[in-house]
Amino acid sequence: MTKKILVMALLAIGSFANAQKGTILVGGNISYASEKTEFQFSEEKVNSFTFSPKVGYQFHDNWTVGGEFAVTSSTNDNGNVEEKLNGFKIGAFVRYSVPLNQTFSVFADMGVGAQNQKYKEYGPGNSFFKSKADGVYANVTPALFINMKKGFGLNFSIGGLGFETLSYDNNGADVSNFYFNFGQTFNIGISKNF
């Protein structure tokens, strides 16, 4: 009896994996965050929005390759100074996925590409400061996929690791940042294989 269940489970996993080969993957995340902090004499409001779609081709049962980009916009207003940051990323990704059964699979995305940020600061007395930076990024994000119906599903991730560089114009600083935020963030996205 146990052998029959094991064989049926292996066949189900194999049929789920083969159903994905040769398909187009479309997916991504949209996130919005708003935070208000009260201080003794002032308050600070931070709003941020990110849209990060990706499109790929699943050329093997477990492998997908494709392109990704992300657009980010955030504002920080503390009553005296208003900061605005707009960012853009474009790159490529490789995904390795392992189906656990017909409903669940785990995957890891590795993305690399170029990025650009524009920063503006508006201060008291109509003072104004702006800067621009260009750089590169690389990241690895493990995630869980839940198949809702016919290849359409939800993606859940709780962080990953990455590296990014930014070089600011007008003799500004060169910044390199390595981060490991596994367990510190939570993202939900959707994806569909066609």
Results as ranks from 00 to 15, higher is better:
residue 5 I to E: 13
residue 7 V to Y: 12
residue 13 I to G: 09
residue 13 I to W: 09
residue 16 F to H: 04
residue 16 F to E: 09
residue 17 A to Q: 04
residue 18 N to G: 14
residue 19 A to L: 05
residue 19 A to E: 04
residue 22 G to K: 03
residue 25 L to K: 02
residue 27 G to N: 03
residue 30 I to Q: 11
residue 32 Y to W: 10
residue 38 E to L: 14
residue 40 Q to M: 12
residue 41 F to D: 14
residue 43 E to R: 12
residue 43 E to F: 07
residue 45 K to H: 13
residue 50 T to Q: 12
residue 51 F to D: 05
residue 54 K to P: 01
residue 55 V to W: 00
residue 58 Q to M: 02
residue 60 H to C: 10
residue 65 V to R: 02
residue 65 V to D: 00
residue 65 V to G: 08
residue 66 G to R: 00
residue 68 E to W: 01
residue 71 V to F: 05
residue 77 D to I: 02
residue 78 N to R: 05
residue 78 N to W: 09
residue 79 G to K: 09
residue 79 G to F: 08
residue 80 N to Q: 14
residue 80 N to C: 07
residue 82 E to W: 02
residue 83 E to C: 04
residue 85 L to M: 11
residue 86 N to R: 04
residue 89 K to N: 06
residue 89 K to H: 07
residue 91 G to H: 03
residue 96 Y to N: 09
residue 98 V to L: 15
residue 99 P to H: 06
residue 100 L to C: 11
residue 103 T to F: 13
residue 105 S to Q: 11
residue 108 A to W: 02
residue 111 G to M: 02
residue 114 A to S: 08
residue 117 Q to Y: 01
residue 119 Y to F: 11
residue 120 K to D: 09
residue 121 E to H: 02
residue 124 P to Q: 14
residue 125 G to P: 08
residue 126 N to E: 11
residue 126 N to Q: 14
residue 126 N to A: 12
residue 130 K to I: 01
residue 130 K to T: 06
residue 131 S to C: 07
residue 138 A to R: 05
residue 138 A to T: 07
residue 140 V to H: 04
residue 142 P to T: 04
residue 142 P to V: 07
residue 144 L to E: 12
residue 145 F to D: 03
residue 148 M to A: 15
residue 148 M to D: 10
residue 149 K to R: 12
residue 149 K to Q: 15
residue 150 K to W: 12
residue 150 K to R: 14
residue 152 F to L: 15
residue 154 L to Q: 01
residue 158 I to C: 12
residue 158 I to M: 14
residue 160 G to W: 01
residue 163 F to N: 11
residue 163 F to I: 09
residue 168 Y to P: 00
residue 170 N to K: 02
residue 176 S to C: 06
residue 176 S to W: 02
residue 177 N to P: 00
residue 177 N to W: 05
residue 180 F to C: 10
residue 182 F to P: 02
residue 182 F to R: 06
residue 189 G to M: 02
residue 189 G to V: 03
residue 190 I to K: 08
residue 190 I to V: 15
residue 194 F to T: 10
